[in-house]
């Protein structure tokens, strides 16, 4: 019988103590936040401590929070004023933050932009935990590598490096993994345009493949909308589900 989320929270708190920077339960999932300085030690404890025993790392997801909560259609006072006729033009949430079509430079360095989200699982105790760790510096995000704790982290960290530019200190072989040889940029960052920066074709004259600036027009079929209206969500039933 797996431990309840409350029990798990208690155990995590009891074991990690001050290293818990945040602990929350939502949708029956426990999310732990740790400070980047404590990441490696905390992760090792999560694997080795009795009652936690997270012996398997299922996943590492890089997340770029730069555009979190941006929408392109203000809906709060729409009831009184009516909607505009549609959304047009190059707005930030529409086409990304910067890049060739972006309009806004990211200038502030919040230390809350890049995070790695680890999903841990214990095969012995049958419970799961999510660990989030924000990199301290947005311009040069560095986190400790956990490859020494779980070997499965190897490729997941390479992926997060490739797609988000997160540097994992102590990784034995931090190379790009999913993108092309010689690729420039980190494509899953919110300031990387969806259409990309370059396109590739075979050049008959030069007899080789050439890279050129992208000629696609960016387009959005459905605007991004945030509605606070969630009548149908009952927080209590969501807890059970």
């Amino acid at each position: 019988m797996p431990a309840s989320t409350d029990q798990l929270c208690q155990r995590v708190r009891g074991r990690l103590g001050d290293r818990v920077a945040g602990l929350s339960v939502a949708l029956n999932e426990v999310t732990l936040e740790v400070h980047p300085d404590d990441l490696f030690a905390a992760m090792r404890d999560l694997r080795d401590a009795e009652g936690l025993a997270f012996n398997q790392l299922m996943d590492i997801a890089g997340v770029d929070y730069a555009a979190y909560g941006d929408d392109e259609w203000i809906t709060d006072d729409a009831t009184a004023s009516g909607y505009s006729r549609g959304v047009d033009g190059f707005s930030t949430p529409r086409l990304g933050l910067t890049g060739i079509y972006g309009v806004q430079e990211i200038q502030s360095n919040t230390g809350r932009r890049f995070a790695a989200v680890y999903h841990l699982q214990s095969l012995t105790l049958n419970h799961r935990l999510r660990v989030r760790c924000f990199a301290a510096d947005d311009d040069f995000p560095v986190l400790d590598s956990v490859v020494a704790i779980w070997e499965a982290a190897n490729w997941f960290e390479r992926e997060a490096f490739d797609l988000f530019g997160l540097i994992f200190d102590g990784h034995p072989d931090l190379r790009r993994i999913l993108t092309d040889y010689g690729f420039v940029g980190h494509p899953f960052r919110k300031d990387f345009p969806l259409i990309g920066n370059v396109e590739v074709r075979y050049d008959e004259e030069r007899g080789r493949v050439v890279y050129e600036p992208v000629t696609l027009e960016p387009r959005v079929l459905v605007p991004r909308v945030i509605r606070k209206d969630n009548r149908y969500v009952d927080p209590e039933s969501a807890q059970e589900a």
Binding site: M58, V117, W155, V225, I226
Partner: peptide
């Protein structure tokens, strides 16, 4: 184990979707 991790900021599109493919590991 095929997993899907979704971060939602309350919009009609996922803010971040991460898929955990078993073959990767």
């Amino acid at each position: 184990e095929f997993g899907a991790y979704i971060v939602s900021d309350g919009a009609n599109k996922p803010y971040r979707l991460k898929l955990r493919p078993p073959g990767y590991t």
